[in-house]
Amino acid sequence: MTEQLSTLVPAARGGDQHAWDTIVDRFLPLVGAIIRGHRLSEADGDDVSQTVWLRLVEHLGDLREPAALPGWIRTTTRNECLRLLAARGRVRPVDPQEDDGLRLDAVEDDVADAGLLVVERRQLLREALAELPDARRALLLLLVEVPPIAYEEISRRLGIPIGSIGPTRARALEQLRRTRALRGFGPDLVGGMS
């Protein structure tokens, strides 16, 4: 079973590098997905990512509710992306002569928001995977490999009969649906709530 944020956050606050690394590994994909959604250059994306993690180091001391961490990371990453885009002069300037200027900006923001829902769902799925017992998680990870891995190979790697892969997959998915993350008891991704 994986370590909970309620354990990791106080440990990191106390100086535990391993706890910090675990937090980083868990949320880097979320940070990366939000950065990709804002279409930053690779170098700017690296810089935003670095700033988000440095800001989190600053913020650890006053993050009283560990469950609010995912929401904090999401909000901070989004804000830092917008801030850097503006600093680079890539915010679409509003021309008062062009009456749909504001509306276009609004549409772009809606698209970014829809993208956020997708990245949140993927983060929940990663949290859910982390809750699964190792053997079941290993099976699901092999089943989503690109390019696909043949059942014979999966059978060999996991040491289970080919015939039991299908039924085990079904049980693993059912267990995935029952995880805290997917039942809605996972970390607060929206942020702000205690």
Binding site: R36, V119, R126, L129, L173
Partner: peptide, 15 residues
């Protein structure tokens, strides 16, 4: 659900 898991895992690999 497996397809969504694949997308979620791909984001981890993209780091």
């Amino acid at each position: 659900l497996v397809a969504l898991v694949g997308e979620a895992v791909a984001e981890t690999d993209a780091v």
